[in-house]
Write a protein that binds this DNA or RNA. Structure first.
Lengths: 185, 185
DNA sequence: GGACTCATGTAAGCTGTTACATGATTTC
DNA sequence: GAAATCATGTAACAGCTTACATGAGTCC
């Protein structure tokens, strides 16, 4: 699924600026889809050329010059069609697991640091997801949040459970130069 | 992390052809990183230009013309450095969760189909991962397989647990045209 | 002899990121 | 008045996928 399609979907929830859409990505879709301004603004522009959205420049108010986008009938129809037609799937690219795959080539201290950082990262994501449950959501959105929490928890707990054994069984790789380990921020 | 770095890593396990590397991706890294021939062969070519790998054409044997790649000292050093320097992280792009996010816009039958297909997909991946545990692996590789199994299981079980409630609470979206649902393959 | 697996590679192009460039408004 | 947030956009280019093109060897 392209970003364009997703932008269309987010406009189903109400008119929004490019900035607003970026916020939604960061707040609600963060754990399963990212997007940058450099792709959002061009996507919106293209969608307008294709007639899927319309935009108007705000004149009064606090922020004159703001460009508010809204979905057209055509855009709505197109979105539903795309949704129905997309196969449920996932793309995962885990640098963490790559690191683990080659853990026998890492120094023990480095391996330990990677495990700890990843655990912290999962904890961090859980701390962001948790409070989202207090808000009102559609059943589907709630599903995505709870799904995210379940999966992050499984990942974090897996690290917690296997960390010590992995480290105690670990041997220093040959030719390791014992460089100082970069400090955790 | 770039594909080039990963190819270097796979060559740490022994000399290999581009084809072999593709096989490794499909067999062992499948659940956390994909790669196509169209990216593997150019990556290998570049790595050779950079002096990180060397290649020789097989002359005798069953497959003359096979190009076997091997890591150079420089390539090894570069790989270790890259590994040590990469932050443990993940990139997720889940079309499934996008679908769920907008589930209120899907017809009940379509939603049901998406959930079932995703569950089947997770089951499928579990069936591939399970037998990998019977083979001998480094502790790190075993970690990635078991991690994958834990996570896939959590995802599949989440769907199983929430499927019925989501479907029974679900309302047909307005203006749904009740098109026939594409049959499952 | 047909199907499948092994094996290599290129070209076009899609999709997105990073970094840059700018400026108004709000909060402290 | 400084910092943070709100707000829009572009240009360069990275990185990968898809589809194409080809051919030998193996299994049944």
């Amino acid at each position: 699924m392209q970003l364009k399609t997703l932008c269309l979907g987010l406009l189903e929830m109400g008119d929004a600026t490019g900035y607003d859409i970026k916020q939604m990505f960061e707040r609600s879709l963060n754990h399963f889809h990212a997007a940058s301004y450099g792709s959002i603004y061009p996507a919106l522009k293209q969608l307008e050329q294709e007639g899927h959205v319309r935009s108007r420049l705000e004149t009064g108010g606090h922020h004159p010059g703001k460009r508010l986008f809204s979905l057209t009938e055509q855009g709505h129809a197109h979105f539903i069609e795309s949704l129905t037609g997309t196969e449920p799937d996932e793309n995962i690219r885990s640098e963490f697991l790559v690191l683990m795959f080659f853990s026998h080539l890492l120094e023990t201290a480095v391996l330990e640091q990677k495990l700890d950082r990843m655990e912290a990262r999962y904890n961090n994501k859980l701390e962001i997801l948790g409070p989202l449950l207090d808000q009102k959501h559609t059943a589907g959105i709630r599903f995505t949040i709870e799904f995210g929490i379940s999966v992050m928890t499984a990942k974090r707990d897996f690290i917690r459970k296997h960390r010590d054994k992995l480290l105690s069984d670990h041997k220093e790789p040959p030719h390791s130069k014992a460089l100082p380990v970069e400090k955790q921020r």
